[in-house]
Amino acid sequence: MKKAALTLTGMIALLHYYIAWFEIFAWTSRGPKVFSDFPAELFEQTIPLAANQGIYNAFLAVGLTWALIIKDAKWQKNVATYFLMFVAVAGVFGALTVTTKILFIQAIPALIALAFLWVPGSSTRQN
């Protein structure tokens, strides 16, 4: 993976660790500030739903982190691709169903990382 692809993958992993923390632990405190268009009473009622979403974001973050530490170049690329595709699909779905901002925060960075990952001639890691 080129340095750019590794860097983007790491940044996307960090973003998903943050999203997981936000949805699991800070939904009622930070949620109303972040999603100011939503009714305030919504947040208390949706704690279990947000926490469930947070767990899925944690899985994405862990998978992307795993991709960063794999030593075999082929498998590093495969695992990174797998999890970046999940992030991209989730971002597109979020953009269609929640807010278009998700497209720019989640989907497009994942697609850019995938593009760097799959640029012809790019190698994942020198062995």
Rank of each mutant, 00 (worst) to 15 (best):
A4Y: 08
A5G: 08
A5V: 00
A5S: 13
L6C: 12
T7C: 07
L8A: 09
G10E: 04
I12P: 07
A13K: 05
A13G: 05
L15F: 12
H16D: 03
Y17L: 11
I24D: 06
F25D: 03
F25W: 13
W27T: 01
S29T: 15
S29G: 01
R30S: 13
R30Q: 12
G31F: 03
G31E: 01
K33G: 07
V34I: 13
F35C: 05
F35Q: 05
F35I: 01
S36E: 11
D37F: 11
F38K: 10
P39Y: 06
P39E: 15
P39H: 11
A40P: 10
A40F: 10
E41K: 08
L42K: 11
F43K: 07
E44N: 11
E44L: 13
E44I: 09
E44C: 00
T46V: 07
T46K: 11
I47K: 15
I47M: 09
I47H: 01
P48W: 01
A50G: 09
N52V: 05
G54Y: 01
I55F: 14
N57G: 04
A58P: 06
A58H: 00
A58C: 10
L60P: 00
L60R: 00
G63D: 01
G63W: 03
L64S: 07
L64R: 03
A67H: 01
A73C: 08
K74H: 12
W75P: 08
Q76W: 01
Q76T: 02
V79R: 07
A80G: 03
A80M: 06
F83G: 09
F86D: 04
A88Q: 08
A88S: 08
V89L: 15
G91T: 02
V92Q: 06
V92D: 05
G94A: 15
G94S: 14
L96G: 12
L96K: 05
V98L: 12
K101H: 10
I102V: 13
A107P: 06
P109G: 04
L111F: 09
L111M: 13
I112S: 06
I112V: 15
A113S: 07
A113R: 01
A113D: 05
L114A: 08
L117M: 07
L117F: 00
L117A: 08
W118R: 04
W118H: 15
V119K: 15
V119R: 14
V119M: 14
V119L: 15
P120Q: 10
S122G: 08
T124H: 14
R125C: 03
Q126K: 15
Q126D: 12
N127T: 12
N127R: 13
